[in-house]
Design a protein around this nucleic acid. Structure first.
Length: 442
DNA sequence: ATGCATGAGGC
DNA sequence: CCTCATGCATA
């Protein structure tokens, strides 16, 4: 179900229990009041719904992002993994072929970006044509934006990040604490967090070449003024209702030569290909809906074939597509659930499509079991951040998604976590937020 | 299905 | 030190 996020938050906000949040809220607003930010810099947040903690943080973050400016973001490389390392981790590089689908999306440093709120409903990309809209609904470093835009005067920065520091962080903690009482009567007080990096040894060298290809894109100013809640709701509703509002503009990506190759071998006769332009097989199908549909189709057909995600991953290497090696179950899973970045999805689609075609063809005839199993000695241990700490981190994150190294150190110390763990946590958190939520119900 | 992590590229 | 694509380990 898709609800208006704001409505959903009401009960939470009005709860006496969350009084502290409102206070913090007010505090933040006060702090930010002096900071002038062009309205186009507003941003909302991409949330993944559920949980008071999240709701709370969301409020804070949302508010912050409404005030903070955006900072330029560049879209990094898009790589496809190559080898299947026999236990070792193979340096991922973008294979030439795959590269075709790896488009870099240069960003207008000042471009405004808006974010979708995902309550637990679907947030389709109906409204933003893939290549026109900001790829990432993320709240790109609102803080940094603040630094750059808001901080016309250094005093402000000091004000916010200086003043913020202690009092805010302290509040964040209080908040986290309160939350812990509220939502979890069962705070696990254990501080388990050992990271045993027992890395495997020899990374196999099956890694293909890497490269990144600039993505064609169009920065359409229309993106500037994000949608209002109403619009959002409307879109969401449409999506829900299945209103097949056709992508108003058909984005014509400037084709990437290699992309055609994939496209060709991958989609001989794909009924779904809306882009079967007479001669050119160029246009990489990047219509969000197409992707979404493909992911779904892929999953079902894969299951029909009786193949696991892991199987697909390793079987990919058998395709012998230059530059394309195997992938992990994780990646396949994320592809199916659309929890990869848009670029990543687009890059992977042709490959998976190719595999699907081949697998089905083989299935029809004989028995083909593409696979490659490598037995590795698993060693790496996963660090696990305890709930209480995680709550604190979330609170901090709501206030400042991109803490400085010093701040990270401070947080790490307070939470008694390794600095690197905290740093990575923030990185992952950011990545998580930016991630395209093609995924509907989550 | 996801959390925490690594590493290549970029500034 | 960040972003991104990915992966191992695990709930």
């Amino acid at each position: 179900m898709v609800l208006n996020p704001l409505h959903a938050l009401l009960p939470v906000l009005t709860s006496p229990m969350h009084r502290p949040i409102l206070d913090l809220f007010g505090f933040l607003k006060q702090e930010l009041k002096t900071c002038e930010v062009p309205s186009q810099c507003k941003d909302t947040m991409l949330i993944k719904s559920s949980g008071k903690t999240e709701a709370m943080n969301r409020v804070l973050t949302t508010e912050l992002h409404l005030t903070l400016a955006q900072r330029p973001t560049h879209f990094g490389s898009c790589k496809l993994s190559g080898g299947e390392g026999g236990g070792g981790r193979v340096p991922r590089r973008c294979p030439a072929t795959a590269a075709a689908h790896c488009r870099r999306i240069p960003e207008d440093p000042r471009r405004t970006r808006r974010t979708m709120m995902t309550m637990n409903g679907k947030q389709h990309f109906s409204m933003h044509p893939a290549l026109h809209e900001p790829k990432y609904p993320g709240l790109h470093a609102g803080a940094e934006g603040m630094r750059r835009v808001c901080v016309s005067g250094p005093q402000l920065q000091g004000n916010i990040f200086g003043g913020f520091d202690e009092s805010l962080l302290a509040r964040a903690e209080a908040l986290a604490a309160a939350d812990s009482i509220v939502s979890h009567g069962k705070s696990h007080a254990f501080k388990a967090d050992v990271t045993y990096h027992t890395m495997s040894s020899v990374p196999c060298t099956s890694a293909p070449s890497s490269s990144t290809v600039p993505i064609s894109h169009h920065h359409h100013s229309h993106v500037g003024q994000g949608l209002e809640a109403g619009d959002l709701l409307e879109h969401l509703s449409n999506s829900l209702m299945g209103a097949p509002e056709p992508p108003q503009h058909h984005h014509h990506h400037h084709l990437q030569t290699m992309g055609q190759l994939h496209q060709a071998m991958a989609s001989m006769a794909h009924p779904h290909s809306l882009s079967v332009h007479a001669g050119m097989v160029s246009d990489v199908e990047s219509d969000p809906r197409e992707l979404e549909a493909f992911a779904e189709r892929f999953k079902q057909r894969r299951i029909k074939l009786g193949v696991t995600q892991a199987d697909v991953g390793s079987a990919l290497a058998n395709l012998k597509i230059p530059g394309v090696g195997s992938l992990s179950q994780s990646t396949i899973c994320r592809f199916e659930s659309l929890t990869l970045s848009h670029n990543n999805m687009i890059a992977l689609k042709p490959v998976l499509q190719a595999w699907l075609e081949e697998a089905e063809a083989a299935y029809r005839e004989k028995s083909s079991k593409p696979d490659l199993f490598n037995g590795n000695e698993r060693k790496r241990k996963r660090t696990s951040i305890a709930a209480p700490e995680k709550r604190s981190l979330e609170a901090y994150f709501a206030i400042q998604p991109r803490p400085s190294s010093e701040k990270i150190a401070a947080i790490a110390e307070k939470l008694d976590l390794k600095k690197n763990v905290v740093r990575v946590w923030f990185c992952n958190q950011r990545q998580k937020q930016k991630r395209m939520k093609y995924s509907a119900a989550h």
